[in-house]
Simulated assay, not measured.
Amino acid sequence: MNVKNSFTLSERSLRLAEKLVEDGQFPSVEKVLEAGIESLLRDEESSAHEDPLIGMKDEIRRRAKLPRDQWLPWDGDEMAARVREQLAEKRRINGTDL
């Protein structure tokens, strides 16, 4: 069942939706909005089921909003060493080579 509703969009959102229609990705602006809403609801539903990728996306976005002085330092060599240690530990526990 379809229900008629009206929305007010920003000019930018309308231009983006119209561009998707012009590019042939959607037949109408209404379908763009419908797809966007369905996508958000799917993400929310997945998040509710603790989808690890959705959780990771949410955490990355949350951390990216933090002030730079609160960001964790990144040292690729140190990170790789920690990962190698964890893998070695798993091999010892499981008695297998990965």
Rank of each mutant, 00 (worst) to 15 (best):
E78M: 05
L87G: 00
R82C: 08
A48E: 14
D75P: 04
E38I: 07
A88N: 05
R84S: 09
A64H: 09
R84Q: 09
S46M: 14
R61C: 05
I60R: 14
H49N: 14
R92L: 09
D77S: 06
L72R: 13
A81H: 05
I54G: 00
R84G: 01
V32T: 03
P52I: 03
S39P: 01
I54D: 04
E45N: 06
R84C: 03
R63K: 15
G36W: 09
E30I: 03
G95A: 04
L41Q: 11
R91W: 08
I54T: 12
G95L: 01
Q70T: 01
K90N: 06
D75T: 00
D77G: 06
E89W: 11
R42A: 07
L53F: 15
D75G: 02
K57Y: 14
R84P: 00
D43E: 11
Q70I: 02
R92Y: 03
P67E: 09
G95D: 01
D43M: 10
N94V: 02
A35V: 09
V32S: 02
E59N: 07
A80D: 12
I37C: 09
I60C: 04
W71R: 08
N94E: 12
M79C: 02
E59Q: 14
R91G: 10
E89N: 04
T96F: 02
D58N: 11
P67G: 05
R68N: 04
I54L: 01
E89R: 12
I60E: 01
K65A: 15
N94Y: 11
L53Q: 14
P73M: 04
A48V: 01
G55W: 01
R82F: 10
E50S: 13
Q86A: 13
S39I: 02
K65F: 04
N94M: 05
R68W: 06
A81N: 09
T96N: 07
W74M: 10
A80S: 10
S46K: 15
L72W: 09
M56E: 13
W71Q: 10
L53R: 15
I93G: 00
V32N: 01
V83T: 02
L53D: 13
M79V: 11
R61S: 14
E34R: 12
N94S: 10
K65L: 15
R84A: 12
I93E: 11
E38R: 13
E85C: 03
K31D: 15
L66V: 03
L40P: 02
N94C: 03
K65Y: 07
H49E: 13
E59L: 15
E85P: 01
E30L: 02
